[in-house]
């Protein structure tokens, strides 16, 4: 086939492509809309006295001594690169003990699981009583754990 004979065929293909361009674009937009990125979720919150590897609490506990350092580890699935966690610790009176925020690490784009740890300690002994740690993910509360100091 010569160059002159192929030209009409090329024009026809281009015309069809242009005519379908808008519909194709809409279809692409729709496809993006029905497949959103998985939303972040908290799969575990654990309280304890020690951390193991990867920030996970190694000895889950709900009763602590007055000189203990208290750890909470929060496992999050599908965290966005900008996601942040906040741990808000309160005493039984509602009095704020501490509030700390931490950006969630996402060092590996294919890795959907992250573990964030928060810990509190007190130079003088903890007052005995009931406490609560409330976990917030991107400004929304996602869970809490109650514990006691004896």
């Amino acid at each position: 086939m010569s160059r002159f004979q192929t030209a009409p065929a090329v024009l026809l293909v281009c015309s069809i492509a242009l005519a379908c361009g808008k519909k194709a674009e809409q279809a692409t937009d729709s496809a993006v809309a029905v497949a959103p990125a998985p939303s972040p979720s908290v799969s575990a919150i654990a309280l304890g006295r020690h951390l193991g590897s990867n920030n996970v609490v190694s000895d889950t506990a709900s009763v602590f001594g007055r000189r203990d350092t208290i750890y909470v580890s929060v496992t999050v699935q599908n965290a966005a690169p900008t996601s942040a966690l906040t741990a808000k610790w309160t005493f039984q009176t509602g009095q704020l003990v501490d509030s700390t925020s931490q950006a969630i690490a996402r060092t590996d784009a294919t890795n959907a699981t992250t573990v964030t740890e928060f810990h509190i300690s007190k130079k003088s002994a903890w007052p005995a009583g009931k406490y609560k740690v409330e976990i917030w993910l991107d400004g929304a509360t996602v869970g809490s754990r109650d514990f006691q100091v004896k």
Partner: peptide, 10 residues
């Protein structure tokens, strides 16, 4: 009260 935090991918 002293506090701290860190985050790691797993």
């Amino acid at each position: 009260v002293e506090s701290g935090s860190s985050s790691a991918s797993m």
